[in-house]
Design a protein around this nucleic acid. Structure first.
Lengths: 201, 201, 201, 201
DNA sequence: AATGAATGAGCCTTCATTCAT
DNA sequence: GATGAATGAAGGCTCATTCAT
């Protein structure tokens, strides 16, 4: 059996990496193509060969990272054996992923400059839709069984992940120890579960 | 009795208002000075007279709005009569302020393009420091008395305001009814209190 | 007998003085009205009241200084008792005037940016014409008598004043002692006389 | 044998030529980049690619022309066989160079707007220093031998080249015949020699 | 005569993008 | 796939000038 995977050429990856650094240091719009060229070692022409435009590069980066994060998140949900395991598992999964992808996370979660991409890019819409659909189905089952409270989607998201996201945000803005995020897992997972558990849980 | 207040010239305010609209519709960097001129009725020269540069304008706007929000938040804390009243009051105060200042809130809370200002502007540092100091002192008293759990500042912030901030964010991204935020107050305030209350509360 | 002289208001003079400093430090075109305002203590309005425009100010300054220099120069010529006294007297007069008006001299003699004024301003044309006419008449008399060589006007100017002007220029570019210019008088006056004296002198 | 010379790209030279024309017609600061673009056929981008800024362009032009003139001048001095030949040869060399490079000369010698460059640009300082050093050494030899008078460097420069420079200046301001400058050579060379020759010459 | 806030035309410069090699 | 010199549209900003007080 041979995996048929379109390998990302090393040049392409180097460009993505360089772009990420630059975008974080300043802003997407404040980042000059030239800076990405400097850091990546690629030529301007190559950047345009792979990504078509600066916006295309920012979008590509956003989509790839978001897809990775979503996959990780959904996986935690799908493999969970119970309501509690799912709720807390998602928290842990998020924290672990952020810990392992700090820069990518800062890019994807903090940059409302990227809201524009959200609105425009079908790939992003698809990703978000899938996340929403899978999570909703998962929730619905447990809500019907009384293991999780019945709440509006928005309130769910807030009670479930709000504290975790805020903690993550603070941790990224003022990084301390490397295990920072992982250490906070139990407290945040517990709080999430307490906030959304149903009467029959 | 006459209040001696340095009035903001109406021109200046008009520029700030116009800038806010433009910044939200696009991005700070995608906003052209000319658009602000159009909307505000001021001349380019006046904009530069008051703010020195486009960046200066974005910064000024950020600082003024942040100061207003912080003042509102701290006021809720200072006038609270109990631990619970303080914790829930801050949640309500935030929601009320956002409801009354939707655009300003979208600008200040969503725009991580502005993270750059955070790093650079001393005025912002001062505002955040005051917020942190006052909140810490207030908390310390109640923590000692066992009315509030003992947690790291970061975990406090996450458990206390995380859900509220996330809810706010979602509400701003996809606005529904006008009372949206106020209606959610009880649930969010209660969740916050449950998450941080101490054993002797 | 009462001299009817329109006194220059002190404000006006202050503006001229400030302008001179600024023009020398940078360039006329690189000098901002605001800088002149700063240095002079006058308001922008006042500057425009007296001079109409920045160009007007530069021109006014140029004309006034040139007139003063020319008067000084011609006076030396007119009062001279002999060919030699005239030739050397003009050299001395120039050196003395420059020594006493170093900044004014740097402005008027070095600034080919001001060539434009030469071409445009009738007052300057009149001044130069008078200088040329008087000097020519004076020369013609002595040339006819064989006391001064017969040369083209251009060659006269070069042999007579060239060395003096060059010395002056160097002295202004790299000022040394205050008496620098005066001390050089005898050598330059002698050289001038040797260069233009006729056979029967 | 092949000369390995870094050729100036034709585009670059075209820009320099166009700039010279424009600078002379108006002023450096009154010249618009767009005018240089028009005349040179290059794009704005190219101008900035080669020279970085309008000031950079003016400076580069100044330095290159000055270097050419200095080389020409020093060559005359170095190849001279006697004191008299050196003194008169420099005069001739200057006149010939100006006759062959009228526009360049007008730019470099008349534009005291460029004094600013003198103060700022190290390359100019280096050129002037070399000129001064070589000329001084050459002079010293002949002064010691009594073939040239002992004078301060400044007085040398004035007596030697003053008349020539003044004549050149007048000729450039009001051009007459093409041979104007060359025709004046004998008179100016002779005057220079008489002014600086020593007793034993 | 004096003031200085307000104006806005104009210009320098940037920087994403192209394309011939 | 890779290169980087050349392009030129676009926009931030300056600064001389005006004018109501």
């Amino acid at each position: 059996m041979s995996a048929v995977v379109t390998e990302t050429p090393p040049r392409r990856q180097a460009i993505l990496d360089a772009a990420l650094e630059c975008f974080l240091a300043n802003t997407v719009s404040a980042t000059k193509i030239d800076a990405i060229r400097d850091r990546s070692g690629a030529s301007v022409g190559s950047i345009y060969h792979f990504f078509g435009s600066k916006d295309g590069l920012a979008t590509q980066l956003y989509v790839e990272v978001l897809a990775d994060h979503h996959a990780n998140y959904l996986d935690a949900l799908r493999t969970s054996r119970s309501a509690k395991a799912g709720v807390t598992g998602a928290v842990y999964a998020h924290l672990r992923w952020v810990a392992a992808n700090r820069d990518r996370a800062r890019y994807v979660f903090n940059w409302r400059e990227l809201e524009v991409i959200d609105r425009r890019e079908p790939a992003v819409a698809a990703l978000n839709e899938e996340l929403y659909r899978v999570a909703s189905e998962w929730l619905a089952r447990h809500v019907r069984a009384g293991r999780i409270r019945s709440l509006s989607p928005r309130m769910f998201q807030a009670l479930w992940m709000g504290a975790t996201l805020e903690y993550t945000r603070l941790s990224m803005a003022h990084p301390t120890s490397a295990d920072d995020l992982v250490d906070a897992g139990d407290a945040l997972a517990d709080a999430a579960w307490q906030a959304v558990r149903g009467r029959r849980a």
